[in-house]
């Protein structure tokens, strides 16, 4: 079969496969996306018709101290919580992967926090742990440290949200586990035959074959972290306080759009975020060429 006719035939089939995706793109994603792009150049308060105001919204961001506070909070969060969370997830996945009894139990147990994840109850739980006279406060006061409520301390409050994110390491862990299962046993056998020890097997079989999964988790958790909303909303009651120390970027978008009815500015903020995420992801993809190993390429 010639390459051209094959491409042609596959192209036809591909478009059949992609029918749902196409519909979704047009109806559910693209139209709202274009709408929000347009809105980002307007003054739109939800109730009246949008009025074009050029680059005003973007200009406003530079002078908006809350915008900069939100950028700072979000960047710190991404930089600190992603490595911690993925590190934990990978470590636990490796510990759990090979022939341990009670695996099912541990997996469920570690996954439980992710199930609870973002429920309203978390706000109360977090106060119980990090609040004034909470678990941590009482534990530290034994050592004579009186920090009071971590949630109300601007220099500590973000760390409680980082802990919350690390606490839900279950979901990347499950993906790591599934990825570890994908590694053919034969490769380990072959490595053993070649005289590779545990460490060697780990570095020359496990890690290279897991790189696509690591990359996958890294990309998605990074995107997810940039978009962190519910946790921040629940724990700070939507304020981003104390003193904007947990004012996540999406929380600020939400405040502008839904509380302040400034949907034009909110759309502009959202587009800036999207471009930022896009750039970070693009950098990840460029770098991935140097460390991610795909079996089929």
């Amino acid at each position: 079969m010639s390459r051209v006719s094959r491409l042609h035939r596959q192209g036809g089939a591909a478009h059949v496969f992609l029918i749902p995706w196409w519909l979704g793109l047009v109806l559910v994603t693209a139209v709202p996306l274009v709408a929000s792009l347009y809105l980002s150049f307007t003054d739109y308060n939800i109730l009246s018709t949008p009025e074009f105001n050029g680059l005003e919204n973007f200009r406003r961001m530079f002078q908006d101290e809350y915008f900069w506070a939100a950028v700072k909070v979000t960047v710190i969060y991404v930089l600190v919580s992603i490595p911690l969370q993925l590190g934990f997830a990978l470590l636990l996945a490796l510990i759990l992967d090979r022939g341990l009894r009670g695996l099912a139990f541990y997996r469920s147990a570690f996954y439980l926090p992710s199930l609870l994840g973002t429920s309203v109850a978390v706000a109360i739980l977090w106060r119980q742990i990090f609040g004034d006279d909470g678990l941590i406060d009482r534990a530290l006061s034994v050592f004579g440290l009186e920090l009071g409520s971590w949630l109300q301390n601007p220099s500590l409050s973000l760390s409680t949200l980082i802990v919350l994110n690390v606490w839900t390491f279950g979901s990347p862990m499950v993906i790591f586990l599934a990825g570890l299962r994908q590694i053919p046993e034969e490769l380990y056998e072959a490595a053993k035959v070649d005289g590779a020890g545990i460490v060697r097997q780990f570095t020359s079989v496990t890690i290279p074959l897991l790189t696509p999964i690591i990359f996958f988790n890294l990309i998605l958790q990074t995107i997810g972290a940039f978009q962190t909303f519910t946790q921040a909303h629940v724990v700070s009651g939507g304020t981003g306080g104390p003193a904007n120390s947990t004012l996540f970027y999406t929380l600020y978008i939400y405040q502008q759009g839904f509380t302040n009815f400034d949907m034009g500015y909110a759309s502009a903020l959202a587009w800036v975020l999207m471009i930022a995420i896009g750039l970070v992801t693009a950098v990840h993809f460029v770098l991935s060429k140097y460390w991610v190993f795909y079996g089929d390429d």
């Binding site: 106060r127 609040g131 004034d132 009071g148 109300q152 301390n153 009651g237 304020t239 104390p242």
Partner: peptide
């Protein structure tokens, strides 16, 4: 009450 004692504003 301090903010810590009352767990924030409101």
């Amino acid at each position: 009450l301090t903010l810590s004692e009352q767990e924030g504003m409101s």
